[in-house]
Computed example of a mutant assay.
Amino acid sequence: MADERDGQEQGVAEQYKVTEQVGHLLRKAYQRHLSIFQSNANDPDLTSVQFVTLCALHDLGPSSQVELVKATSVDQATIRGIVERLKARGLIDLSRDKIDGRKVIISLLPKGEAVLQQMYPQGHIISEQTMKRLNPAERVALLFLLRKIADEDDPKA
């Protein structure tokens, strides 16, 4: 009985190839994208997550950390560190909310806006380089499928 179970478990293990699993392939694709980002960024000290955070502040205007977490899909602990680094570089400012003094509001400073304006054209290049092996239909399909996987709140998913 134990030998039979061991044989079945061995067969399942042999069928499972981690390098063919969605998580592994997504991680490899993301690592490639990050490499392309770093090699094309105007600012070598700007990470992709910092760029997303600056984009969110540009789009939303002054925001709380909770709002940034929601807009960027970056966890609370990570966004806290990103905010600290962006503030240290003089790209954002922190202030107290006028209504709720306990709430910290994060705002994009002119220097942060300038970094964004320089990075927007690079962002297009980075996306293009990331998907350069895909034909137009594959690009549409990839973005559609990634949105479908990522959108946990969508009742149709």
Score class of each variant (00 low, 15 high):
Met1Val: 06
Arg5Trp: 11
Gln8Lys: 12
Glu9Asp: 08
Glu9Lys: 12
Val12Lys: 09
Ala13Asp: 12
Gln15Phe: 02
Val18Asp: 10
Val22Gln: 04
Arg27Ile: 13
Ala29Arg: 09
Tyr30Gly: 00
Tyr30Leu: 06
Tyr30Ile: 08
Gln31Ala: 11
His33Glu: 13
Ser35Cys: 14
Ile36Val: 15
Phe37Arg: 06
Gln38Glu: 13
Gln38Asn: 15
Gln38Asp: 06
Ser39Gln: 15
Ala41Asp: 03
Pro44Met: 05
Pro44Ala: 02
Thr47Tyr: 07
Val49Gln: 09
Phe51Gly: 00
Phe51Arg: 06
Thr53Ser: 01
His58Trp: 09
Leu60Cys: 04
Gly61Asp: 02
Pro62Lys: 09
Pro62Cys: 10
Pro62Ile: 01
Ser64Arg: 09
Ser64Ala: 08
Gln65Val: 12
Val66Pro: 00
Val66Gly: 01
Val66Ile: 11
Val66Thr: 09
Lys70Glu: 02
Ala71Met: 08
Thr72Tyr: 10
Val74Gln: 11
Ala77Arg: 13
Ile79Met: 13
Ile79Arg: 03
Val83Ile: 15
Glu84Phe: 14
Arg85Ile: 00
Leu86Asp: 00
Arg89Leu: 04
Gly90Val: 04
Ile92Phe: 03
Ser95Met: 08
Arg96Ala: 05
Arg96Thr: 11
Lys98Gly: 03
Lys98Met: 10
Asp100Leu: 02
Gly101Tyr: 11
Arg102Ser: 13
Lys103Thr: 10
Lys103Met: 01
Val104Pro: 08
Ile105Lys: 08
Ser107Gly: 13
Leu109Met: 10
Pro110Leu: 15
Lys111Thr: 07
Ala114Thr: 15
Val115Asn: 07
Met119His: 00
Gly123Thr: 04
Gly123Asn: 07
Gly123Ala: 01
His124Val: 05
Ile125Arg: 11
Ser127Cys: 10
Ser127Asn: 05
Glu128His: 15
Gln129Asn: 13
Gln129Lys: 14
Arg133Glu: 06
Leu134Tyr: 01
Asn135His: 13
Asn135Glu: 05
Pro136Phe: 06
Pro136Lys: 04
Ala137Val: 03
Glu138Leu: 03
Val140Asn: 05
Ala141Pro: 07
Phe144Gly: 04
Phe144Trp: 12
Phe144Ser: 07
Leu145Phe: 08
Arg147Asp: 00
Lys148Pro: 01
Lys148Trp: 13
Lys148Tyr: 13
Lys148Asp: 07
Ile149Cys: 06
Asp153Met: 11
Pro155Phe: 02
Pro155Asp: 04
Lys156Leu: 10
Ala157Glu: 04
Ala157Gly: 14
Ala157Arg: 15
